[in-house]
Simulated scan of single mutants.
Amino acid sequence: MIWQQIIYIILALIAGGFFSYLGIPAGWLLGSLLFGIIIGLIYKKLPFEGLPFQMALAMVGTSIGFMMDQELFFTLHTYLFPLLVTLSLTLAAGLLFGWLMYKWTDLDILTAFFCCVPGGASEVISVSREYGADDRIVAAFHTARITFFVLVIPFAAGIFYPVIETEAQVNGSYTNLALLLPILFVVISLSIILNRKVKIPAGALLYSIFIGFLVGEFLVPLESPSYIAGIGQGLIGAMIGIRFDKVTLHRLKLIGLPSVGVIQLFFLFSLCLALIFFLLTPLPYMTSLLSTVPAGAAEMASTAFALQLEPTLVSSLHVIRVMVLFLVLPFLLKIILKIAK
């Protein structure tokens, strides 16, 4: 099994690197994601939960942290009100779409609701099991939703906001790898240890961004080559893509067309939500979309990093969104159970 995983990861990264070489938007992420979907559908699903996925999150988070500066903390508060508005609408939409799933399918109310909780997929799936929902259906729906979003949004973002490489990126003027790699290893290790000690939603991503920022800002000025973050994005894409396997497809078929309809509604809602955030902030529309779309903090932060669209801000807003969601989740459950009566 371990050799199959290693070979798969190598091939997925080659696919991601090739997409990036061709100039495809968010090529590392999309190339490995598509490769993973193909392998998952024609071969089999390989498990990459737990430590491997946490390492990939931390790798991307560390690269984002190295880019962060203190200015973000002085401007972040200006986005809190727009975030509160869009977050309230996102929670309301989750309730509405969960109710529609319940009415349109044979799913029980809790399973339908957890399918539409707009939070971190892995956290939602584990919590759904605790509340007695069918976590297999929940996992299948979230996998399909995130896969669809990660396929469509980076490509659309890249069309409207193409990446312009700087001279440093082209010529490879970066921090010495002999210095960078040990620091990268230490930051990733610390992030994973912290996430195990104090577990929070998107913890590995959040801790690595914060530690990377502290190291780069106060200890050693760092600038990592784009392929370092690209490899992290490729790992995330590979581990997400392989989840969309034959079993996932079969479970989605059991739900039927309503599941496709709800995913499309989620997407249209996200476009409208981004417009509201865009009107309330000075951010470009595509950055607003990446900041508000309920499609995973790591995935959207990776996309923002690849397209140079405020990755530190995007990741910060997503982490806040996911943490607030889990704080209000018990209240949302009470509401959905009352609706079902």
Results as ranks from 00 to 15, higher is better:
5 Q>I: 13
11 L>H: 09
13 L>G: 07
13 L>Y: 10
17 G>D: 07
20 S>Y: 13
21 Y>F: 12
24 I>F: 13
30 L>M: 10
33 L>Q: 11
35 F>L: 03
36 G>L: 12
36 G>Q: 06
37 I>G: 01
37 I>K: 10
39 I>N: 04
44 K>S: 10
46 L>N: 07
47 P>C: 04
50 G>F: 08
55 M>G: 14
56 A>Y: 09
61 G>I: 05
62 T>I: 06
69 D>E: 13
70 Q>N: 15
72 L>G: 08
72 L>P: 02
73 F>D: 05
76 L>E: 10
79 Y>T: 04
84 L>C: 02
87 L>Y: 03
87 L>K: 03
88 S>N: 02
91 L>V: 00
97 F>I: 03
101 M>L: 15
105 T>S: 12
109 I>R: 03
115 C>V: 07
117 V>E: 00
122 S>Y: 04
129 R>D: 14
133 A>Q: 03
134 D>A: 14
135 D>M: 07
139 A>F: 04
141 F>I: 08
151 L>D: 10
154 P>V: 03
162 P>R: 04
165 E>V: 13
167 E>A: 14
176 N>Y: 03
180 L>E: 06
182 P>C: 05
183 I>W: 11
189 S>L: 14
189 S>G: 05
189 S>H: 12
190 L>I: 13
193 I>A: 06
199 K>T: 10
199 K>D: 10
202 A>R: 03
205 L>H: 07
206 L>I: 14
208 S>M: 05
209 I>Q: 09
210 F>V: 15
210 F>L: 15
219 L>K: 10
220 V>E: 05
222 L>M: 06
223 E>A: 15
225 P>L: 00
233 Q>K: 07
234 G>K: 08
235 L>W: 11
236 I>R: 09
239 M>F: 15
244 F>E: 14
244 F>M: 05
255 I>E: 13
265 L>Y: 03
275 L>W: 15
276 I>E: 03
277 F>M: 00
277 F>H: 04
278 F>I: 05
285 Y>V: 01
286 M>W: 12
290 L>G: 00
298 A>C: 11
303 T>G: 02
311 P>A: 01
317 L>K: 01
324 V>L: 07
333 L>V: 00
333 L>K: 00
335 I>P: 01
340 A>F: 13
341 K>M: 11
